[in-house]
Each structure stands twice: as C-alpha cells, then as structure tokens.
Design a protein around this nucleic acid. Structure first.
Length: 752
DNA sequence: ATTCCTGCCTTTTTT
DNA sequence: AGGCAGGAAT
C-alpha cells in the first residue's frame, strides 16, 4: 500500500485533530510527554501517532511497542489501529499490557536469567496461598504476621525493584519480611512460577543486564508508547527506560490528575518528574474536553483545582452548558438507593439506553443496597468488580488441574485439587507428603508418585495418592495428543469433578456447571482463534492467556445499567452518571488507618475521575446517615461536593418524597396513580414523579428549612436552621459554626 | 474428613 | 451486617 493511501485510510486529515493533538501525532524522534486531560482524545492521539510512524515514516510495525495497563485498553487500541492500518500491519505491532508484554519477552529470552519457558503466572490468590505456606514453614505465628500483610510488604519491595537482599532493614519486622520474601521467591522458582510483579521485575533485570539477550531486546523496538503513564510504578518506569535506553524514543501519555493507584505502587512522580529524566522532552497538553457538558467540566475543574503539586492544566470545552448537576440529599442509604433507582427508571422511560447509565460508589460494600433496589424494580443491571469469573472456585479448580498437567511442579495447584472433589486425602496426609517432598527437594506431585517409600503414611492414603498421580499422568499423556478442549472434557470427567457437581443438584451446583460450560466455551474460542492465525492451540498458550486475562470480560451486550466503584470507572464514559455516597468519610474515604495528606490528595483525584466520566448528566447524592459495618454513621456532604460551583448545581432532596409518603395514603399519591409500564410497584413513596423535585423553592421550602434542618451557604458553610420565615422573600435564620447566627435569604441556601 | 460455629475485619485491586 | 478463615465437634 502506498504511504498516501495509508495516510488517508488512517483518516489523518488535520481537520480531525486540534492543534496540540496534531503536534503530538506528528512528533517522531526523542522523548515526548503528553498530558491528556479527561476526555481530550488521548487514544486517538496514540493510535494516530502510531499510524503516522508506520505510514509516513516507514517504521516497521514490529518495531513499535505500545503498552497499556488493562487488557481492555490494549484490545481497544488494537482494534482502532486495525481500522486505521488494516489487519496485516496492525498484527505486527506490539500492543499489550505491561504484564502480557513482559510475559512474551520472558518466554522468548528468559532462559538467560533462569526463567523456564513454561512458567505459570500466579494470581493474587495463589500468591497468598504461597505466602501462607511459607509463613507456616518458617514457623511464624500467622496471627502476628498475617500473610496478607506480608504479601503486601513483599509486593511493595518488588514494585520498587528490590529483591530480598536489597531490602532496607530498619526494624525486626523488616527482617521477618525479608526472610518470608526470600522463601517466597524460592517457592515460586521451585514451582516454575512467577507472580505479577515478577513479570515486570524479571524483565527489568533481563533488559538491564549485559547479556546478548538484553542487547536484542533493546534493539527490538524503535518506538515505545505508554498509555496511562501516571499509573506506572517504579519498576515499570525503569523497564521503559531500559527498553529505550539507546534511542530514547519514549512517548508517555497520561494525566497526573487521574492518578488513583498510589496504593498499588503507582507513582505520580513518574509523570510529574518526567522532565527531570528527559529534560529535552517535548511536552504537549491536551486540554480541550470533547466528552462532557460545560457544567460537568467546570465542576471537575473546581474539584481538581485544589490539588497540590499538579501540572498546570486548564481543562475546557466548547460543548454546551447542558443540564445542571443535580445534588440530592437523602436521609439514609436506602432512601438514596430508592431515589436513584427512581431516577434511573425515569431516564430509561425517557428513552436513555441502559448501557449509557452508570452508578458509582466509593466502596463495593455500598453496592448491596442499590442491587436490592434494582432487583425489586426489575431493572437489568450488571456489577463490575466483585467476584470475577476467573476467581470462582469451580473455574480455579478446573484450571488448577490443567495447570498441574502443564506444570507438574506447581504445588499450589496440587494442593488445590488433590482433594477436590473429596477423595479422602486430608490435611494430615498432605502435611506428611509436604515434609517428605521437602526432605527430597522435589514437588508434591513427584513426591506422591513414589509415595510407597513414605513409611509413616497409611496404606489407604498411599493408595489414594497413587490414584491421583495416575489421574494426572493420564491427563498429561492425553494432553500430548488432544486439543485443549478435548483435554478439558476428559479432565472434567475423569477427575470426577462433573460427577460431584451433578450428584448434588443444588442451585449453586447448577450455576457452577454453567460456569464450567462457559469456560469450555472459552477453550473453543481460543482454538478457533489460533486456527485463524494458523497456529497450533496448545494448553500452555491457553493458560497464559487466561492467567493474564483476570478481567471479568463482562459481555456488555446485555442492555444493563452499570454499577461499579469509581476506580472501576476510570477510562469509561456514560451519558448519565449517578455519583453516590458523596459524604465526608465515605468519599473521601477515611478510617483509623487512612487519613494521610497523600491519601486525601488521591481521593480528590478520584472524585475528579468520577465527575469526568459523565457526558451529559451527573446526579450526585449523599445521605445524612448510613449504616457502615453495622453501625450508623452520620456524615456531612463531601468536601468535593462543596467544591463544585453553585451555578452548576441544582439541589434536590428526597425528603419531600418521604414526607408525602408519610402523610398521605399511598394510593392517592400521583406517582402511584400512574405507575410506569412494566415497573414493579413502588415502595415507601420513593418513586415520585419529577415534578415533585421542581427547583421552585416555595414548594419544598417548609420541609427543607424547618427547624433543625441542615443547610449550606456558599460562604458560611453548613448551618442548622433556627427559624424560618416563608413568603415572597423567604428568609431563614441559621447557626453556622464559626460565624454564629445569620439571617439569610432562602435562595442563598441549599438544603442538605 | 467433613461440618458447623465462632470470632475477626472490613478501600480502592488495571495485571 | 456479612463473609471468611480457623478451630472444635461429630
């Protein structure tokens, strides 16, 4: 294909890009830093730049590496590149997550640093299991050193690029961490496994070494691009620098205002300090927002403006002001849920696609109330996060069998399935086998294969273990001559797993069988895909994909409302967003351990992320009281809410609805007289027609400003009503902390 | 070996 | 409040 043709196919007319976007796309050699504000067309810039490198500058596609954090982002980028450049070229580009890219490099070159070709990737659960085992073997008290905490400490070391011997030891507990870390590493290597951190860290060591392999990897890519750069941790950044050491063609794209993963090791300083490492870097800021209404952009900007140390940016939009942001005060979480669900039904009735509606909360625990309300009103919804497909026990069990077949050294998998389904191999047996295995320096499966040498084990136990070994061996020999799907079928049958589930026909087991069927479907998909690429589908390749695809890859084909945490919402956008639980101590989230300045900063950025997800309509809710971990808590509205300029906001309250509900028999209430078609009967008067929330202050003056009610004033903050005088120029006398009693025109007050 | 109970802890979790 | 892990009971 000719370059010009490719360019036009890439849609690269300047009219499609604004000026900073075009500058970023046109940049070729040397370091480039792009600050991409929310909704500023970041993905477009990255993909166009890649297209430009290939089409105009004739860079071979296989010499370009684009790194993302999520599989989803990677596949989106890939498909956009495919439509720009066509399948032949895009196939050769390296587009993938940090982890997938590193796994690929390790499989190609890892031998030189002692990483076998068929290593497994252990997920969070496996890691914890392994740490627990190590803790026990070291004879440590699990109560004093919870495996969870230790694993966290180990991960932190790894994310900072330190091995056990490179740790800073400041206390006795550091010493403990170090010894657990060392033993954990040894256990991983013995199992021929790596964890997520290893994927990065081992690749860094590989690329930084002086080996021939390091040289080849560094020569492999002429251009490296990174998306969501603000989310990189120390090791990931080190990797990027090592990969581009010789040419410095490192293009990073991100937004320090959207850095919300500090607690996972992400370091905003990577983006904020990029200039220090690359003083000659070209810096481009994308500040025009194409996504949201002007009201939403102003609100977002007001929230983030108070952030400290941020790179100066001024997000703006040419879009219309749009509908005001609604701020709704609810009594408690149930009131809040009822109100939100009512509003969602309204929106759906008005023709909004359910897929364009999202409900955010700070923590998962808040989802339950919403879920119940959604179910009660028959609204289809999906929850992102929570228990993911690949985390379900039956899926992990099935995969553990196959992983054990692929990698007989994987003790974690052995322990998982040796007695699943129950085969009468109990803890005592496994404990003795472990000791035996340790004494002989071999894996559990291998120890079990010559278990007859183990004196202190009962004959019955030996027989059972031998039978299990035979099962795995049989499956292993099948693996050599079968397709992965056929092997899966055989495993499910021969292991007795399917039988155990169908024997006891409970609803849960039905679901589990369904899930296994779905897993089988993923084997079929995998085989079809590999066939299309002309490759042989191997079990190992399948397992690799699955271990890096922990994402719940929810098919959003179903038309559902989406519920998720704000973290889960990053990178997404919706027409209508409900941002719930906007109270102090909920959002910003705070408890005894979590209240540092840094954390507060991150909460602020999180609020910014939340607000910028909305395209057309944002409804913010907060509850006066809520049940948290069994106790009732009363909270003021979030500081972030108070940061939103009042001219963007329209306040409402669910209170009028409840007053109507209490004072009138339900059949006489307007909302009940004409229920929405197909809707479940409303409960407790929460589903009230919108007219009831009209912004006409007179109609809800009395309840909103009755004595004792809380109100907010732009200057004086939150106050308590002492006295109110309705009428044309209604006034309210209220007490404000730090200001005393003030008499104020009601229109300057917001009921809370 | 399995089951049941009690006591614990509770953010966010791209891979 | 609820889910889970560890320990006791069967």
């Amino acid at each position: 294909m000719k370059a010009r043709e490719m360019l036009s196919r890439a849609g690269m007319q300047s009219s499609e890009l604004n000026s900073p976007q075009a500058d970023a796309v046109a940049h070729v050699d040397g370091p480039l830093l792009v600050f991409a504000g929310a909704g500023s067309g970041k993905t477009r810039v990255i993909t166009y730049r890649i297209a430009n490198l290939v089409a105009t500058h004739r860079v071979p596609p296989y010499r370009i590496l684009a790194v993302t954090f999520t599989n989803k982002a990677a596949s989106e980028m890939r498909s956009r590149l495919e439509s720009l450049l066509g399948p032949d070229i895009s196939r050769d580009l390296w587009v993938g997550t940090f982890h997938a890219t590193c796994a690929k490099l390790l499989r190609l070159y890892g031998a030189s640093i002692g990483v076998g070709k068929n290593f497994l990737v252990y997920d969070a659960q496996d890691q914890k299991t392994l740490v627990t085992r190590v803790v026990r073997e070291l004879g440590l008290d699990e109560r004093e050193y919870p495996p969870r905490t230790l694993l966290g400490a180990i991960q932190k070391q790894k994310q900072d690029g330190r091995g056990p011997d490179e740790m800073n030891i400041d206390s006795y507990s550091d010493r403990t961490v170090r010894s657990v870390y060392a033993a954990y590493e040894a256990a991983l290597r013995a199992a021929n496994a790596v964890d997520f951190e290893d994927l990065i860290l081992l690749t860094v060591r590989l690329v930084e070494s002086n080996s021939e392999e390091a040289e080849s990897i560094r020569r492999r890519f002429d251009f490296v691009l990174v998306d969501e750069f603000q989310d990189t941790n120390a090791t990931q950044y080190r990797l990027l620098r090592a990969l581009t050491r010789d040419h410095r063609n490192l293009c990073v794209v991100g937004d320090d205002d959207q850095s919300i993963y500090r607690w996972r090791g992400a370091d905003v300083r990577n983006i904020r300090g990029y200039k220090l490492d690359f003083p000659d870097a070209v810096v481009i800021k994308l500040e025009q927002n194409y996504r949201s209404t002007a009201h939403i952009v102003s609100a977002a900007l007001a929230i983030i403006a108070k952030s400290y140390g941020r790179e100066a940016k001024q997000l703006w939009t040419a879009n219309d002001a749009g509908a005001p942001i609604e701020l709704v005060a609810a009594r408690d979480e149930r009131d809040e849920a009822g109100y939100v669900i009512g509003r969602i039904r309204e929106a759906v009735a008005a023709g909004v696609d359910r897929r364009q509606i999202a409900l955010f909360y700070r923590v998962h625990a808040q989802s339950r109330v919403f879920e119940e309300a959604l179910r009660a009103s028959n609204l289809p919804y999906r929850i992102v996060g929570g228990m993911k497909f690949y985390e379900r026990a039956e899926i992990k069990d099935a995969l553990a069998y196959l992983r054990l077949v692929a990698n007989p050294k994987s003790d974690v998998d052995f322990v998982r399935v040796v007695n699943t389904p129950a085969r009468g191999i109990g803890d005592t047996t496994i404990e003795r086998l472990s000791q035996f295995a340790r004494a002989n320096d071999e894996s559990l499966l291998s120890a079990a294969s010559h278990v007859h040498e183990l004196g202190e084990l009962g004959a019955a136990a030996k027989k059972k273990l031998a039978a299990f070994c035979a099962l795995i061996e049989q499956l292993a020999s099948s693996a050599a001559e079968m397709t992965p799907t056929a092997l899966f079928d055989e495993m499910i049958e021969k292991s007795g797993y399917a039988n155990a589930l169908s024997a006891d026909r409970t609803v849960e087991n039905e679901t589990r069988l369904e899930n296994l069927k779905e897993l089988r479907g993923s084997f079929l998909d995998f085989e079809a895909e590999m066939k299309a690429l002309g490759e042989t589908p191997t079990l190992e390749a399948y397992l690799e994909r699955v271990s890096l695809q922990t994402n719940g890859d929810t098919p959003d084909s179903a038309s559902s409302v989406t519920l998720m945490t704000v973290h889960g919402a990053k990178g997404l956008e919706f027409d209508v967003v409900f941002l719930t639980g906007m109270e102090e101590d909920m959002f910003p989230y705070r408890n005894a351990q979590h209240n540092s300045d840094e954390e507060m900063e991150e909460e602020r950025r999180l609020a910014y992320v939340a607000v910028t997800r909305a395209r057309k309509k944002l409804v913010v809710t907060h509850a006066a009281s809520r049940q948290v971990f069994g106790t009732t808590r009363t909270n003021r509205p979030s500081r972030f809410v108070r940061d939103i300029p009042t001219h963007c906001i329209q306040t409402a309250s669910t209170r009028l609805a409840s007053i109507v509900a209490e004072s009138e028999p339900h059949w006489s209430r307007p909302a009940f007289r004409k229920p929405l078609a197909g809707a479940a009967p409303p409960q407790e008067g929460r589903y009230v027609d919108r007219e009831y929330f009209s912004d006409d202050t007179a109609s809800d003056f009395a309840p909103a400003f009755r004595k004792g009610a809380r109100v907010m004033h732009e200057r004086f903050g939150i106050g308590e009503v002492r006295r109110s005088d309705p009428g044309e120029n209604a006034t309210v006398t209220a007490f404000f902390q730090g200001w005393g009693e003030k008499k104020i025109l009601a229109k300057f007050l917001r009921p809370l």
